[in-house]
């Protein structure tokens, strides 16, 4: 670590001072102009007509319904994707099988597909005029233009977040701990609860936080499947858009400020988990950094 710090210092010293200042200055300026200022503006606008107006806007039944639906969506999407993420990361990091690379690529699919297209996909699949949607409707289950559609669309969009976080972490941790536990007589469940889960907990929480943030803010996919029914299928981002389009700026920015506040909290949580997770890996590498090449299991 020490030599690394020295290196960095030497590197920085070799750069001309002016270049350094310009780079730092422009980054700060850019961040201020495009991130900090708008964020402040949201809060300033929301509170422009005083605390009472702000409070009234949030207290509206439609706004509260949107908040409730958003939280419910998070409560459905985050645990499901946490489970899926652990399963996928486990399969990929600890086993060798055919088609593994295709699976890794597929996990990334939601990142490359535009959310609007994702929403449209589910409308095609579950809409009233589709075979599956019709069949479900006959049995009184509505997916599209109802909360289940919103859950499904959100799960799709936040699908890769936990898995992407856990795959490299589990690959770095390797199989030794689990093998040690099993050789000491532990069963598969004991090994998972006592060894694997504690080893990946910070990475897992980090992934879940990312998932929560994305689930709350998702607009495109949800917008397509929601149908914008006030008080029923509007999530917070959709509610904000409606209020904004109706020129009700104070209300729009009040709800927006609430969403922004939650994002700030998530950012803080994310930072903490990220740091904890890295700490864990540093412990681990300090461990194997005692020298000597790592021999492959094939030797």
């Amino acid at each position: 670590m020490l030599s690394l710090k020295k290196n960095r210092a030497a590197n920085a010293a070799s750069q001309p001072r002016l270049v350094r200042r310009i780079l730092i200055g422009s980054t700060v300026l850019f961040l201020g102009l495009f991130l900090l200022l708008p964020l402040i503006a949201v809060f300033a606008y929301a509170l422009e007509q005083g605390g009472t107006a702000y409070w009234m806007a949030i207290k509206q039944p439609e706004a509260l319904a949107a908040l409730r639906l958003t939280l419910m969506t998070v409560a459905v999407a985050a645990p499901l994707n946490a489970l899926f993420g652990i399963a996928a990361a486990w399969a990929i990091a600890k086993f060798e099988f055919r088609g593994k690379n295709i699976l890794i690529t597929l996990i990334d699919l939601p990142f490359t597909v535009s959310p609007v297209i994702a929403g449209a996909m589910f409308v095609l699949l579950f809409g009233a005029r589709s075979a599956m949607g019709g069949w479900l409707l006959d049995r009184g289950i509505q997916i599209i233009f109802a909360p289940p559609g919103i859950f499904i669309a959100t799960i799709f969009v936040t699908f890769p977040l936990v898995a992407r976080e856990l795959i490299p972490l589990m690959q770095a941790l390797g199989n030794d701990d689990e093998e040690a536990a099993v050789s000491l007589g532990a069963g598969p469940l004991q090994t998972f609860w006592r060894i694997t889960l504690p080893n990946i907990r910070w990475g897992l929480l980090y992934g879940v936080v990312l998932c929560v943030a994305r689930a709350m803010g998702e607009f495109g996919a949800v917008s397509v499947v929601s149908g914008h029914i006030r008080g029923v299928t509007n999530t917070m981002p959709l509610q904000i858009e409606i209020l904004y389009n109706e020129y009700d700026y104070v209300a729009a920015f009040s709800v927006a400020s609430l969403l922004a506040l939650v994002s700030l909290v998530t950012l803080g949580g994310k930072k903490i988990f990220e740091w904890k997770s890295r700490q864990h890996i540093i412990d681990q590498s300090a461990y194997s950094a005692q020298g000597g090449p790592v021999e492959s299991t094939a030797s």
């Binding site: 030794d176 093998e179 040690a180 536990a181 007589g185 006592r194 060894i195 461990y287």
Partner: peptide
């Protein structure tokens, strides 16, 4: 194991006791 594979989140005591505790 070559790289010990000790359970990082447990104390030395709990590491050694692990095989007995999981019985």
């Amino acid at each position: 194991f070559q790289h010990y594979a000790l359970f990082r989140h447990m104390t030395v005591f709990d590491n050694i006791a692990f095989g007995l505790n999981v019985r």
